[in-house]
Amino acid sequence: MERKAVFANPEALTDDLTHYCPGCTHGIVHRLIAEVIDELEIREITIGIAPVGCAVLAYNYFNLDFAEAAHGRAPAMATGLKRVQPDKVVFTYQGDGDLAAIGTAEIVHAASRGENITAIFINNAIYGMTGGQMAPTTLPGQVTTSTPFGRDVKLAGYPLRVAELIATTSGAAYVVRRMVTKPATIASAKKAIKLAFQAQRAELGFSLVEILSSCPTNWGLSPLEALEWVEESMAAYYPLGDYKVIDEVKSLR
């Protein structure tokens, strides 16, 4: 019998092995984005923007035109790229430090303008790149290298719920939160990423997919334990769901 590959490296990914730690879900999300780009046949018109953070080298792994932004400025850079070539598909790939701390103004205003770009937001409740400090999304009580006694909200404030925040902007067309912990949640995340890109193709405005992700290294958990922590602790504070889906996006489903 002839055998046929039914699952292999998407064309929109390079063959390079990522630098991410074992079990880090960045890799899953990279693959989902690449699969969506292949399925929509937009690889040759898509431009990605990498953040500062663990995904700073994302441009090495996508077989696409890519730019590397300054910390937090990916939405501004994407705005510039998209405004001068509106026929292209432009997406940012940003972590919680990049998007929800230093780049809060840029993401909020890109969303508010209805900038026709897509933001893939990786929320892993910690600063991975700099070695496990508190992120704006670090949970109350969570121990990090800069909250050694656990995040005390009286001292360090509360975690920021990005999807909920961005959903309040009038320019946002599609804002959802997903996670990538099991085949089923991964499939749901992929659908969301696909819809976000489709919304951009249909010129419906700003789209953001927040993805709860794991950081086994900085959480001090095994990859499997880390996924459990995403499901139990993170999803409790950051409920999965569709926070804004305008009617025109619904009709793309």
Binding site: I47, R73, A76, T79, G80
Partner: peptide, 19 residues
């Protein structure tokens, strides 16, 4: 485009320049 700040403006310039 009127940006939300000079930080954003120069990075929009950066993006368009990349294109």
């Amino acid at each position: 485009l009127q940006a939300e700040s000079e930080l954003a403006a120069i990075n929009m310039v950066y993006g368009a320049a990349c294109a």
